[in-house]
Each structure stands twice: as structure tokens, then as C-alpha cells.
Amino acid sequence: METKSIMIVGVGGQGSLLASKLLGRLLMDEGYDVKVSEVHGMSQRGGSVVTYVRFGDKVYSPIITEGEADIIISFEKLEAARYAKFLKNDGLIVVNTQQIDPMPVIIGAATYPEDVLSELTDKGLNVEAMDALSLAIEAGSPKAVNIVLMGRAAKQFDIPYERWINAIENTVAERFVEMNKKAFDLGYNF
């Protein structure tokens, strides 16, 4: 199988680590070769964060470059736009419609683009937008945005529903399992 490339992007502190951990382990258990790459340190302090997940028969590079991503899962609108150029022409962006202003916007040195997702669809990109934050709150915690989005993206993988649920049970702390399962379902059935 040709290597598939998934990007998980967002703002430091939004929980991309758990999403990539869940996905990476699930893909390994499904028998794929897997690489997951992220950068720690400076980028965690509210900065833009990106995690690369790649899987296939044999994966060499741990990173993803322009025009290579099959799916971009974005926790925030602006970050979807920032990394859109990494998407393949027939790729898919799953994006949470939440807006988090970066510091240059907060202090008035830059402007948050008005309708950045429409700009992407106008260019022919396949964008599935959803208010994952509201669904996460419905599931029990605003922190479950990551799992809602994973649920939405899950159908793009050739992996049965039950295996995703098993992966959640194996990855998150026991007391959060039910809440995360609910969050996953809300995304999956969106």
C-alpha cells in the first residue's frame, strides 16, 4: 500500500498529542508501518502546532511536505488555512470552526481573515467544517474536540468502527472513556 499522510494541526494546548497517539497506535495494531512526528518545546506555548501521521507498508520520512497530505484534521480555522498547501489536490480537510486569535491579531498588528474556509473551498479544496467545540461540550468536555474530529475523520480510514472504540478504550484514562466514546460518536455520526 502506498504511504498515506495525515496532518493534525491546531493551537498549542488543544490536545493534538492524544489524537496522534490514538491514531498512531490504532494504525500499528492494524498492521501498518507507522511514523508519527511532532515538535515539542517552544511550539507548545500557544503557538501553531502540527503533528504528522504517516502509514503504509513501509514508511520512510516522518514528515509531510507540500501537496502530500491525504487528510488534514484541523482544530482551528486559521490553522487549516495555514497548512492547506500541504493537502493533495483530492485530499480532505476536516476542520473545527472555532476561532482562536493569535497574538498579532489580538494586539492589532494583523487581521484574522474574514471567511478563510470559503477561500479554501473556492480554490477547489474539499473542506468539511463542523462546530466540534459545541459537540465536545455536549459530550461532556470542551477538551474532547480532538476526539470529535477523529470521529469525523474516521470514515476516511479502512478501519471498522469497533476498532476505533477499542483504541479509545486503550488510550484514554478509564474515567474519561465514556465521555470520549460519546465525543467520537458525535463526530462519527455528524
Binding site: A81, A84, K85, A110, T111, V116, K123, G124, L125
Partner: peptide, 10 residues
């Protein structure tokens, strides 16, 4: 890849 026309703030 394809990019948005608007400038994306850092």
C-alpha cells in the same frame, strides 16, 4: 499545494 489568498497571520 493550494493556499488561501488572505494573508495568514503568524
Amino acid at each position: 499545494g493550494v493556499t488561501a489568498d488572505s494573508e495568514i497571520p503568524m
